[in-house]
């Protein structure tokens, strides 16, 4: 187990180290001439109006929720696909039921209009 995952850990440390070192490098070598205009949020040269902590469309939340449901279902298909040949026909019909359940939910979501972006 350790032999398989230890290289991933070493690589992770290397990559994080690379990121941190290059940030520190740019902090050391970079020019520093701050002024209030430069540090204000970019709004095409105009004085910033209001804050950016505003509300945004509820559709994005809806997409996030739908993603959670469907992605969990997608992950359930992974182990099934890996052992598919051992399961034979039993696995086929079991998964047909599972996909039918996903499809029922999918058609419901579609009919409810949750996938319409224009409205």
């Amino acid at each position: 187990m350790l032999e398989k995952w230890a290289p991933v850990l070493i690589f992770f440390i290397l990559v994080v180290g690379f990121g941190v070192v290059s940030l520190i490098g740019s902090y050391i070598f970079g020019v520093k001439k701050p002024d209030p205009r430069k540090l204000s949020p970019y709004e095409c040269g105009v004085q910033p109006i209001g804050t950016a902590r505003e509300r945004f469309s509820v559709k994005f939340y809806l997409v996030a929720m739908l993603f959670l449901l469907f992605d969990i279902e997608a992950i359930f298909l992974f182990p099934w696909a890996v052992v598919y040949r051992q399961l034979k026909l039993f696995g086929f019909f079991e998964m047909l039921l599972f996909i039918a359940a996903i499809l029922a939910g999918y058609i419901y979501v579609w009919k409810k209009g949750a996938l319409e972006w224009e409205r």
Binding site: V16, F18, L23, S26, G30, K32, P34, P41
Partner: peptide, 29 residues
């Protein structure tokens, strides 16, 4: 490397600095 590193005044400093690393590490991993 030699360019000025601008950190906007109203930004969330820690997350602003951490975000590039959070983006780069999984991509390389």
């Amino acid at each position: 490397l030699f360019k000025e590193d601008v950190i906007p005044t109203h930004s969330n400093r820690f997350l602003y600095i951490a975000a590039p690393i959070v983006s780069l590490v999984p991509a390389l991993l």
